Amino acid sequence: MDEHRQGGWAERGRRIGADPRTPAVAGTALALLAVTESLARTAGSGVTVRFALFLVLLALATTLPPVFLRPAAAAASVTGATVLSLAPFHSLTVAGFCAQLLVLHRLGRAGSPRSAALLAMPFLPLALVRPAMAHSGTGVLTVLLASLAPVAAWAGIARRAHGQALTQSAAHRAMTSTLLEHTARGERARIARELHDVVAHHISMVAVQAETARLTTPGMPAAGAQRLSSIGDTARAALTEMRRLLGVLREDTGADTADRQPQPGLRQLVDLLDESRDASGTGTRLIVRGRQSALDPGVELAAYRIVQEALTNARRHAPGAAVDVELHYTADTLALRIRDNGPGPPATPATGGHGLSGMRERAAAVGGELRTGPAHGGGFVVETVLPTRAETTG
């Protein structure tokens, strides 16, 4: 209970200190106290009315500046008035003493630390050069100022440094959290893309090969045919589960990011077509036009993945159809055209797949465009034009 109450008081004190109206309210209250104290001291002391009025104005000068001035100007004004009160007139009110400590603390916290440290220094010489005043009220206040003014200034400086450290720590934590989240999202996107482009491709080939072996192997026992059929069913079920997992990953990552790692390239395209031809048992041709040239690794990776996905889609949606893969090199672009002679796109397009969107993302990631749809004369076609150098967006 005591700790809770202390924490509540500390929090209330921090809120009051942070309120921009606090200096004006405190300065006004201290000014009233200083005037009252100054009038009480001069009453019956035998000083003239003019001198008493001067001391009242001096007391106001030691307390009122925080109401109207910014921390640096207020601290300079109060310090000047306090030194003037002590040096020639040996008079300082308790309210002025409190105001001096407050403006130094405020300057150290919200203004220039160097100025706060300099303005805390004049009181030590005043305490040392007038030892006779040590036992008077003004002398005690002078000694206390010499001791406590640097403490108030450095307390403000320390509080400012602590606040800056907390702010920097919070900013660092936020930046680290954002960086980690961005890295994790990018890694999940890369995993989703590679699962779809590589693992799904091979699982699809397992399903196709199992079905082809079951249908083309003469004299196969019924048990063997049943096992091959089970292999195909299991592979297709794995593809369904993988598509569900990819949906979760893509929802988690939001926008996909481009993977520009120079993994497979166009040099591996012949092996990819041979693999697809062996798996499907149908004709797959590679047609190259133009003068071949070195491409950006990101462009080669995008081209390879687009061809890989198009071949997978052809096996899945047009089994037994022949596929032509055409590459047309120009000085600035690489045009890809993958066409099959199957039945073409279904009347009602399937929803939920990521193959076509993945190919579009691959093309867009390197600054290209991709078009899909029914081919002239029948079948389905995927066409894209990629720049020879990947375009990056900053």
Rank of each mutant, 00 (worst) to 15 (best):
D271S: 15
D271M: 13
L273S: 04
S276A: 11
R277A: 02
D278T: 12
D278C: 12
S280G: 13
S280T: 14
S280L: 14
G283F: 03
T284K: 05
R285C: 07
R285N: 08
R285Y: 06
L286Y: 08
I287K: 08
I287F: 06
I287V: 11
I287Y: 03
I287H: 06
I287S: 02
V288D: 07
V288K: 04
R289E: 15
R289V: 11
G290M: 11
G290N: 07
G290E: 03
R291G: 08
Q292P: 05
S293N: 10
S293T: 13
S293L: 10
A294T: 04
L295T: 00
D296I: 04
D296E: 04
P297K: 05
P297A: 02
P297Y: 04
G298D: 04
V299S: 00
V299L: 00
V299K: 01
E300N: 03
E300M: 00
L301Y: 07
A302R: 01
Y304V: 03
R305L: 06
R305F: 03
R305Q: 12
Q308S: 14
E309Q: 15
A310R: 00
T312M: 11
T312H: 11
N313F: 06
N313S: 08
N313C: 10
A314T: 13
R315W: 08
H317L: 10
A318G: 08
A318L: 05
G320C: 11
G320S: 11
G320W: 05
A321H: 05
A321Q: 03
A322L: 01
V323H: 10
V325M: 07
E326K: 12
L327M: 02
H328S: 15
Y329I: 02
T330G: 04
A331G: 07
L334N: 09
L334T: 04
A335Y: 11
A335N: 12
R337A: 10
G342W: 02
G342H: 01
G344S: 09
G344T: 13
G344N: 12
G344Y: 03
P345Y: 05
P346M: 13
A347R: 06
T348E: 13
T348L: 14
A350R: 13
A350K: 12
A350Y: 14
A350W: 13
G353E: 14
H354D: 12
G355T: 08
L356K: 12
S357L: 15
G358Y: 07
G358E: 08
G358V: 06
G358K: 09
M359N: 09
M359D: 04
R360Y: 15
R360P: 12
R360T: 14
R362P: 02
A363Q: 00
A363P: 01
A363E: 05
A365P: 11
V366L: 05
V366T: 04
G367P: 02
G367W: 07
G368A: 02
E369D: 13
E369R: 15
R371S: 12
T372E: 10
G373P: 00
G373I: 03
P374F: 03
H376V: 00
H376W: 06
G377N: 00
G378W: 01
G378S: 03
G379E: 06
G379F: 02
F380N: 10
F380G: 06
F380I: 06
F380V: 08
V381P: 05
V382K: 02
V382T: 08
